[in-house]
Design a protein around this nucleic acid. Structure first.
Length: 495
RNA sequence: GUCCCCAUCGUCUAGCCUGGUCCAGGACACCGGCCUUUCACGCCGGCAGCAGGGGUUCAAAUCCCCUUGGGGACGCCA
């Protein structure tokens, strides 16, 4: 019988979760969901120097926001150091590892020299064949040592089938005797990670392609420890437009998951975008609900070529990959209104324009208004900025709109207040009634209705463009519309 | 320098395994048009790609080789 699938996401808490990590987490999660398997969250915090509590929390928050779930509580790799060291001892005893007394300085010197000669940078195996006596002697003398894996020599190779990259083969002669325990007694990633995966009975290691050149070394550890080797699925990397690996250092917040949360992305829209980076179905389908994506997901759909996250640092039109924005906008206008309601609320609270009545007496008005304006928004933050006038009397008038729709037509200075009077007199403030009033007035003054309509739009919403004007008037309401129209003269007077 | 991986429109990709149905399909972006009081949406249309060179074959985006380009690894980081 096939064993239950167990995967893990194993971030090192040295900063926020960036999109590369998020992709890895998403693919692991999808695979677990697809196979009804388990996903473990393991915090690889063995680098005490760089690990921070803040970053652990940040990563967990980002994962939760994305909607990624895992089984069991997250645990910390540092809790299992003794287990890692026990494995190292076992490797030592079985002759699969040896103590290396070379100092860092010596190794550095050799590496530099090799660099200069433009030759091999790998460890030369100085301590590989030390006699038992020599080892004992050095130990007695208190010389610190690292533990290195004793990679088989001679003909032969490590070969494995990667689910994404197919057959991968490394000759023994190309693999150096890598260090698994530091001279201060701390285990290293290659060891810890493998030992943890063995204990957790991980069946599938799904990680970035940068792990591909670790796989063969870890397989050596698995074998020497007599443990079954998991299946590997290495995913192509996400690069920036300059084809450089994305990094916190270079790109800052732009590649942080929390940045997208703060900039009005719907979490699922972001997941949907991310999953399309380096993965596709045979139909190139693009939009998936959660259930649909799990259903459609397959490791075979992962692309071998790296993909580019098309961030545009100083692009005035798109603050991030246009496709990400487009997918977000798609969800924003098509999701059931109740699903986006909470995200809108958050933005309005941030903008200081939230009214608790929107959840009580004004609830249906609130939903109708979101429905009215969401079609042309890209991110939820738009509700607090471009959509501000619908919810607050304190909103700015866009300079371009002011210029084009108001100031260009000086007659509006007296027409708009007149219109305010007529609208105020209306008994039924409806789409048809308001439209009649406005069109009649346009005819009366011999102007195109658009002149009045656009003037009204700017005065009432502060915007250059927006939904159908008469719907807008109803949404904003008779009282507020009248009040805003009466401000027209003031706009001219300011000049 | 050594090893590993990759290569289709500007970007994300389908097609490649199992050659012909591909003078290469979709999406985003861009450009035009329709709709419209505006802007979006929607619809219609357009621009744009098999890195290059050799082979194999009746036939190559698809198979093989080389070149070039890109990425990753080569840490007592993870």
């Amino acid at each position: 019988m096939q064993r239950e699938v167990i995967v893990r996401f194993a971030p090192s808490p040295t900063g926020y979760l960036h999109i590369g990590g998020a992709r890895t987490a998403i693919f692991n999660w999808l695979f677990a969901q697809k196979t009804c398997g388990k996903m473990i969250l393991r915090i690889e915090d063995t680098d005490a120097e760089r690990s921070t509590q803040e970053s652990i929390q940040g990563i967990i928050d980002s994962l939760k926001w994305l909607g990624i779930t895992w089984d069991e509580d997250p645990y910390f790799q540092s809790q299992f150091i003794n287990e890692h060291l026990a494995a190292a001892r076992k490797l030592l005893e079985s002759g699969n590892a040896y103590k290396c007394f070379c100092t860092k300085d010596e190794l550095d010197r050799k590496r530099q020299a090799a660099l200069k000669r433009k030759s091999d940078l790998r460890y030369d195996g100085t301590c590989r064949n030390l006699t038992l006596e020599a080892v004992a002697e050095k130990e007695e003398a208190g010389i610190p040592y690292t533990i290195r894996m004793k990679v088989p020599r001679g003909e032969g190779s490590v070969r494995f089938e990667d689910i994404v990259y197919k057959t991968i083969e490394y000759k023994y002669e190309d693999i150096e005797d890598f260090v698994i325990v530091r001279s201060n007694g701390q285990p290293l990633y290659l060891l810890s990670n493998a030992v943890d995966d063995i204990r957790d009975r991980i069946t599938h290691v799904i990680r970035g392609q940068d792990g591909l050149s670790n796989a063969h070394r870890q397989i050596l550890i698995y074998r020497a420890l007599g443990a079954p080797v998991p299946q590997f699925a290495h995913m192509s990397l996400t690069l920036d437009p300059q084809k450089a690996k994305i990094s916190k250092r270079k790109h800052g917040e732009l590649v942080a998951v929390h940045f997208y949360r703060e900039h009005g992305f719907l979490p699922w829209a972001f997941v949907n975008f991310l999953v399309l980076l380096g993965w596709a179905t045979p139909e190139s389908r693009e939009i998936f609900s959660r259930e649909e994506l799990i259903e459609a997901f397959s490791l075979q759909g992962i692309n071998r070529a790296n993909s580019i996250f098309d961030v545009r640092k100083d692009d005035p039109k798109y603050f991030t990959d246009p496709k990400a924005i487009s997918i977000n906008a798609h969800y924003l206008r098509t999701l059931p209104i109740e699903e986006i309601e909470p995200y809108v609320r958050v933005e309005m609270e941030k903008a200081g324009i939230w009214d608790p009545e929107y959840e009580n007496t004004k609830h249906s008005w609130f939903l109708d208004t979101i429905e009215l304006i969401r079609g042309r928004f890209h991110v939820t933050t738009d509700f607090g900025s471009r959509g501000r006038a619908y919810f607050s009397d304190d909103f700015p008038i866009e300079p371009r709109a002011l210029k084009k729709n108001i100031l260009k037509h000086p007659e509006l200075k007296k027409w708009l207040p007149m219109l305010a009077d007529r609208l105020q007199a209306l008994e039924s403030f409806s789409v048809t009634e308001t439209e009649n009033v406005i069109r009649e007035m346009a005819a009366e003054f011999g102007v195109k209705p658009g002149v009045l309509i656009n003037g009204i739009r700017t005065l009432v919403t502060g915007q250059l463009a927006g939904p159908g004007m008469f719907d807008v008037l109803i949404a904003i309401g008779q009282h507020r519309v009248v009040k805003r129209l009466r401000r027209a003269p003031a706009l001219f007077d300011k000049l």
